[in-house]
Nucleic acid binder design. Structure first.
Lengths: 359, 359
DNA sequence: TTGAAAGCGCTAACAG
DNA sequence: CTGTTAGCGCTTTCAA
């Protein structure tokens, strides 16, 4: 790595007042109490804004706290009160090993979750889990005592593990799909319906031979594919499944050979994600295919990016911010000890320019 | 929100063995110690893999721990040992108010940071800070006692705040730019050089009128602009600055009116980010401009996405994963009490198809 | 090699 | 209204 180093400058460790008196940093409630002439208990109550403590004393303590830059030791507070105020947000990397957190869909969801969680006064402990390497990934997180609840950004291929944990650990909500009778709370869209909508739209635009792009290892994608297949079977359209990775880096080459190889097998593509769709657009262009004239394309997710492709991408919209809100809301209920139900939202077709006008 | 609700099923709270005896969950070291016939101290040592405890006892304890699914209470452990094992990763949202974490550059960086941090056995506390709302955002994070160190994903417009904190809080590393003599440790690329490289490339491709796309509120972008300006001034090329937001959602409309309005003012565009470049590509297409024949475009960052635009984007590469590694490495040194220097990496031109062949 | 004991910094009864 | 007291669950001397 080509680089230039710049050196930092050294700092005094112990600050000293102008008149030379040592300042011993106020680190504990007792320290502050000593200055204020009260005990730690009172300071604790004052800082918590308790009505129990005299208004004047309280204000004096608050002022002193501010003046000395005092901050509560969160660890001690959490240990004692048994409320951590933290929520574990974990990204299970089940079937995309040796890869980092980067899926834009998950990142967008994470962004919205962060907003919701922060707004409710919780902190976020972010975990990247690789189930294949540590089968007890979820137990560790749930049992760490570090978090009041856990959010799973996707179920990956860990449905069974999540179900098992849910038997004993309640404050857990996952983004993902809902299977009849499942134990854990999931929030997501109806992927099967999404697949159906996409397939029907392609057919309505005149397609007769469909292709589905994406690996079906994860439940959600598998359901999208199932939806597509239902429709294809129903109307007797052909359908090829072209599995490819879900990240830009891994997908491009695959897609090039896959699409070139199956050239002519399809005139309508349903991509498992907008990312795949975007790459497909580019590969198709390289193959000399016109979109949507020769081949129609539909994406999935409706990420901001989908509106910026060329041509702009028709796609299946998932309400990510609404979903994030629901997830955090449900988790908070669960933390409060209430029983929470799963939520299956309806997907929505967003018409842009990679599909043909209706016949 | 259109939705279907599915109800979860209720669970027993107290598991009972087949023979009816109550299982009281093993929650503390003392609990486990009682079962193993030793004290909490010994269990603690055993679990820590200490050589001090007899191998056979240790193995027995380990087996028992596993059998009962025992997990150490992290909070208590951290309080006592005064090592939290957590690193605060904060995204300062200085000049993009009312917006969530979603900038793909930051998200990509976050992904790599998460990898590095996890690999070193730390956990991540993710914070989204809005300095405008809470001027003491950084003090709160650094003083919370929750983290051993802090990583800032970007300096935003908070350079001064960061410098102030750095006077007393050492384990802090930021992604961003380095200013002569600065106190806090920063890792980033030479943005001015990046701007220069981009401008020269456009000029070499025959451009004579440059446009810079992006708001220059943040230090990094401002430096990129400065680099461009240096070159423009040097060769007497014209340069317009077209400020626009950095996120897809906010940028599109702006860019449409900006580019339409300045049509003819430029034949070479330097975008402050790949995102802006991608949107510009689309807007330009709508305006009937050919890229690179009529207008050349250069992006910044070299995100995975840059290779997938149409045409594929020429851009200035920043080594995000290398940067993440350096950041975490430096932070770890700083946590260990060592003094760490800033790092300025060299940017690199990636030639793709939005610039013209050299004359 | 293990036990006993002290205490991390805080909160929450319980008294007064 | 405030002080006293007793831990939260763990780690780590110090003794044995």
């Amino acid at each position: 790595m080509s680089s230039i180093m710049k050196s930092g400058r050294r700092l005094d460790e112990d600050p000293v007042t102008k008149d030379g008196a040592e300042i011993t940093k106020v680190k504990t409630l007792a320290d502050l109490g000593k200055i204020a002439g009260v005990t730690a208990g009172t300071v604790s109550r004052a800082l918590a804004g308790s009505e129990l403590v005299n208004k004047r004393t309280r204000e004096r303590i608050l002022a002193l706290a501010h003046e000395h830059g005092f901050q509560l030791n969160q660890i001690a507070s959490k240990l004692r009160s048994k409320r951590t105020g933290m929520i574990g947000v974990v990204i299970p990397l089940g079937h995309e090993r040796n890869q980092h957190i980067s899926d834009p869909f998950f990142m967008t969801l994470l962004g919205h979750l962060a907003d919701e969680i922060t707004e409710r006064g919780y902190s976020i402990v972010l975990e990247r889990a690789i189930p294949e390497e540590k089968p007890d990934w979820l137990d560790r997180i749930c049992g760490s005592g570090m978090v009041d609840g856990v959010i799973l950004i996707g179920q990956s291929n860990q449905f069974a593990t999540i179900e098992r944990i849910a038997e004993t650990y309640r404050p857990l909500v996952a983004w993902g799909s809902y299977q009849e009778g499942q134990l854990h709370c999931a929030v997501g869209t109806d992927n099967r319906a999404g697949g159906e909508i996409a397939a029907r739209r392609l057919l309505a635009g005149g397609a007769t031979r469909l292709a589905f792009l994406g690996e079906t290892t994860g439940v959600e994608i598998a359901e999208r594919f199932a939806g597509v297949k239902d429709v294809a079977d129903e109307v007797g359209a052909s359908l090829v499944h072209l599995p490819c990775h879900m990240s830009f880096e891994l997908m491009t080459g695959e897609l090039e050979s896959l699409l070139a190889q199956h050239d002519g097998d399809f005139d309508g593509i349903i991509a498992a994600s907008d990312l795949i769709a975007m790459t497909a657009l580019k590969v198709l262009y390289g193959l000399g295919k016109r979109v949507p004239e020769d081949v129609q394309v539909i994406g999935y997710d409706d990420l901001p990016l989908a509106a910026q492709t060329m041509p702009p991408l028709t796609t299946i919209h998932q309400d990510i911010s609404g979903g994030a809100r629901e997830i955090v809301q449900r988790l908070q209920s669960a933390i409060a000890g209430r029983d929470v139900a799963s939520l299956v939202m309806a997907p929505k077709l967003i018409e842009r320019e990679t599909t043909r006008g209706l016949a």
